[in-house]
Design a protein around this nucleic acid. Structure first.
Lengths: 118, 118
DNA sequence: AGAAGATTCACCCATGCAGGTGAATATATG
DNA sequence: CATATATTCACCTGCATGGGTGAATCTTCT
C-alpha cells in the first residue's frame, strides 16, 4: 500500500501546490458546489476552473456526482491524510518551534485557510 | 505573516511533489551530504541533481553551507511544519479512517519514509 | 603555477500546465 | 422541436521544469 500510493502522493502534493486549487478546496470545505459556482467565485474562466477540478479529482481530493446537467463537487480530504502521513515522518526535524503536532494544530486553527493571494 | 507565506507554501508543496526530491529529503534526513554524494545515489546527472537542490533550497527545505569547494547540504524541515499546518485544517474531513492526528502519527511511524519508487 | 575536484552556468530539447477562446455535447425547460 | 443552461472538448499561447551536454568558475592539493 505504501508503494502504489507514491503516484497518488505526487498528484496530491502537485494539486495542492497551486493557490487557486487550494482556494477551491477551501470553498468546498464550506459547502458543496457546482463547477459554475466555483468559476464565478474566482477571476478565472469557467474552462480553467473545469481543468483545476480535473486535477483535484485526479488527486482524489474532489468527488463529483452528476445530477442531471449539474456536476456537484464535494471535498474528499482523505488523500490529505496520506500527505500528512508523509510530512509527519519529518516532524522530529521541525525543531523547537513546534513541540507536539496537536499543540501546533490547536494554535494554528484560527488562521485563514483560503490560501488565496490574488 | 500568514499572507506572505502563501508563496512559500506553493514552493514547498511543489518541491515535495517530485519523487526524486522527496528521496533527496529522505537521504538528507539520514545524514548531511554533498551535491555529488546525492547525485551518485540517483540515476540522474550531477547537473540535474544540482537543480533539484536549488528547488528544495527555494522552498526552504534544504540549507547549504559552503565549506571550501564542498557544498554541505542539510535538511530543514521547518517549512514542512507549515505545510502540515495547512493540511491539518482539513483533518475533520479525513473521516473515520483517522480519529486523531497523534494516533495517526503513532501508527504510521514505522512505514518507509523514502518515497522512492523504482 | 598547474592539475584535479566540486559545483554551477549557459544552452538545448521535450513535456506539462495555467490561462485563454470557440465549438461541441448533454440536460432541462418552454 | 427549439432554446437556454452546464460542462466539457479541441486548440492555441506563454512559461516553467525535468532531463541532458559542455564549458566556466572556484577551491584544494602537489
Amino acid at each position: 500500500m505504501g508503494e502504489s500510493s507514491a503516484r497518488t502522493l505526487d498528484r496530491v502534493f502537485s494539486a495542492v501546490s497551486d493557490p487557486t486549487r487550494r482556494a477551491i478546496l477551501a470553498r468546498l470545505a464550506d459547502s458543496e458546489a457546482r463547477v459554475t459556482d466555483i468559476a464565478t467565485a474566482f477571476p478565472i474562466s469557467l474552462n480553467s476552473t473545469s481543468k483545476h477540478i480535473r486535477v483535484l479529482e485526479g488527486a482524489g481530493l474532489v468527488r463529483r456526482s452528476v445530477r442531471g446537467r449539474e456536476h456537484i463537487l464535494a471535498l474528499d480530504a482523505a488523500p490529505l491524510a496520506q500527505a500528512a502521513g508523509w510530512i509527519v515522518h519529518y516532524r522530529r526535524f521541525w525543531g523547537d518551534q513546534l513541540a507536539s503536532l496537536d499543540a501546533f494544530v490547536a494554535g494554528r486553527d484560527k488562521t485563514d485557510r483560503t490560501g488565496r493571494s490574488s
